[in-house]
Structures are given as structure tokens and as C-alpha cells.
Design a protein around this nucleic acid. Sequence first.
DNA 1: GTCCGCTCTCAGGTATTTCCCTATGCTCTC
DNA 2: GAGAGCATAGGGAAATACCTGAGAGCGGAC
Lengths: 218, 218
Amino acid sequence: MNPVRILIADDHEIYRRGLRNLLETQANWEVAGEAITGRQAVEEAKRLSPDLIIMDISMPEMNGLEATRQICKIAPDTQVLILSIHENEQLVHEVLEAGARGYVLKSDAGRDLIAAVESLCQHKPFFTPKVSEMVLEGYLKGGSVSDNYKSPQNRLTAREREIVQLLGEGQTNKEVAESLNISVKTVETHRSHIMEKLNMHSLGDLIRYAVRNHLIQP
Amino acid sequence: MNPVRILIADDHEIYRRGLRNLLETQANWEVAGEAITGRQAVEEAKRLSPDLIIMDISMPEMNGLEATRQICKIAPDTQVLILSIHENEQLVHEVLEAGARGYVLKSDAGRDLIAAVESLCQHKPFFTPKVSEMVLEGYLKGGSVSDNYKSPQNRLTAREREIVQLLGEGQTNKEVAESLNISVKTVETHRSHIMEKLNMHSLGDLIRYAVRNHLIQP
DNA sequence: GTCCGCTCTCAGGTATTTCCCTATGCTCTC
DNA sequence: GAGAGCATAGGGAAATACCTGAGAGCGGAC
């Protein structure tokens, strides 16, 4: 039987160590790689085609939510397990919408992570008890999750959200352009589209928007 | 030479694993015990008399700040190193007041933790670069930290705080100048002073600072 | 299959804003 | 009265905003 190949995406080195250490206690599991940013996670997912990704939400450059969206699109066979400190209903629905199949709170991870990984490997979703209630509620309300969830950032495209995050992290247009390997002009275009869509008129508005919508940490 | 005996206090099992794993790479260091709550940390500090405690801030039952206060009172020989995700000036000064001798951001921990532990073992304080500037300024101003740091934004002058707030609320330099009936040039000067004082390089940084320090609402 | 709409990409040009350095009063302290 | 800190501001260089325009790719509609 082939080993289960796992990619770890978390910006804290200590936490990655802890995860690796825990996962390696399991026979037949293999940590195939590590990623520090969402962008790296996407790249490594492409390169390594892991069976499963353990994904933190808050990461620099690109957050885990956005990374999950992209990975589930380009590599639908890869299972994504979200590890988050946020016990936030909105966020749970967002990550499910993005394509993740599991959500474990970091405070429960020591107890539940192994079970969660096992579950996802058998293509069954997994949620820590606190989370599963929220999820259930979402479905019971009728309609799909997406019907219930119309957050304003859905109006932004993936690329636009990405740019909002980088700007929010303090990068200038020029730095964003370098980070994404695109022209400054392109960044300017995106930026003006974003401003227009959200009806904002200054970078300050944009950044507060990003903080409110958990695209960045204050 | 006796080994350095370390107590780990953090409520996340994965994180404790990571810490233990990292610390055990060092010869002559020994993880004497673990605590999951602040209360446990106090008890274990009494029972084990470790040389050093690595202390998370957010823990259930009793937070790391309160635990630090108690431990520094009952076991003044034990060094406390704070490990926190919060880049918040107020908090830094509170933990120093409480008796901690080091403050490392979790995002920097992988790089700085070993150095921090070494430093504290030689009874030298240690702070990650981002943090050390805040601290340094506090001491350079003379008097105790608490005198100067009733609130972190004391480092900025009244006028500067006013400007940070207006910028944070989404006003442009020009609008701020109109609001305050001063020249745009003056606003620019204030702004660059603020940036310099806080060691920031973009409006994004500034706004996140303002949100963290409750100068504005996100 | 083709067309339409959306997205991402980029360019050029001008107006505007910001950045960086310097400088002048003013007040308070030592 | 010398110096430190603060609020004020100017000049020139750099960056950004704001417009128009446009090609390439992609997915859904018909």
C-alpha cells in the first residue's frame, strides 16, 4: 500500500515541527513537503500532488482560504484539511465553499488531527464537534451553503483578493507587482477595479475592509 | 555543567510538540515539563523550579500574563520567555511589567527561539527585532516602562495620533490637511515622522497599527 | 462551433500624491 | 541661552492615480 503523502502549510516553523512530529508517529504516513505561505502551498500542491494538505488559514502573502480555492480547482483529488484557531461560523462556510473537506480547531488538533486525516483519506469529511454543529446548521437551513453565504468579498475575483491581501500586508504597488511577477500597471488596474467594486476611495478603506473580512491580521 | 531545565506552557498540543522537538535539538537542554493552562504553569513552576519557562499568552483558565506575574513573585530565579502571536505594544509592556525577560513573536520563533533561550540563560533579556524597538524606546525615555507606557500610543505626539486616526479612517493626506486646516506638506511631515517612529514603511502598516492599538475600528 | 462576457494582463500620458531632505519658528527644560 | 522636541512647510524626485485602449485566454450561452 502506498503511503499517504501529506503537505503541511503553516507559516509558524514551530507549529510545522509539531505537525510533522505528530504525523510521523503514524506508520505509512509521509510528510511530502512544507509550505510557509498560501502561494507556496499552491506551488507545492502542483509539484508534489500530495494526497492531503493540512492548511492553516492565516498565512502571509496568500491566506489558506484562497490557497484552498486554487488547489481544489487545479488538483481536485487532493484533500484539504483546514487547521484554524478561529471558531467562526462564517469562516467555516467559506472554507467549505472553497473546497476543503475538513476543519479542525488548533485547540483540538492534538486530539482530533489523526482522526481527521484518516477520515479524509477515506474521502469522508471531518469536523471537530464544535465545528460540525455549525456546518449542520448551514445545511439544515435549506439551500446550498453558497446561497446562505453572500459575503461581499465574493464580489472580488481571486486575483483581486490576493492583491488586497498583499496591499493590506503593507506592500506597495511596486512590491506587489514584484511578488506576483506582473507589471505595476496591472496592479494599478486591479487596484482601481477593487476600489470601484467596493466603493472605496482610499487605501485606508481597503485595508480596514481586509481586516474586517479576515484577509489579513491587524 | 547542569542541564538547562525548561518548562513549556502552551495550550496547543501540536505547538508543545514543536517546541519540545526544537529544544531537544540542543545538547544540555532538557524539557522538564509541560503545562496547558496558566494555573498549571504556576503549579509546575513551583514543583519543578525550572531554569526557564516558555510561556504562551493565550491559555485557558489563567492567561500567560497573570501566570508570569505570579511566577516571578514566587520564583524570582526562574526566567520567563513570552511567546505570543500578538505584535501589540501595550501587551509587550504589560508582560515586561509582569516580570518576563523576553518576548518572541510566534512568527519569528523558529528563527529566534534558540537564541532567546540562550540569552535568558545568561540573564540577558531578549526580544525579537520588531519588539525590541518598542522596548528600547520605553527605557531610553527614562523612568520606568510603566511611566511612559500607560498606553502605547504615547510614543506618538497628540498631533501625530490625530493624524494616524484620520488616515486610518480613510482620509487622504489632502483631506487630513483640510480637516486640520494645515498644509498638505505638514501632514506629509507628520506622516513620515510617524512611519519612522514606528518603523513602518507603508500606509498599510500604519493602519494595521492603528487597528491593533484601537485608534480606529476596522 | 461561434460568440459574448469576464478576467487578467499591459501600455501611454497627464494629473496628483507621496517621499525624502531641509528648514524655520515656537515652547519648554536644564 | 542652548538644546531638545514639536508643528509647520517648501522643493525636487519618485510613485501613484486616473483615464483610455487593447490583446489573450477561458467558460458559458445559443
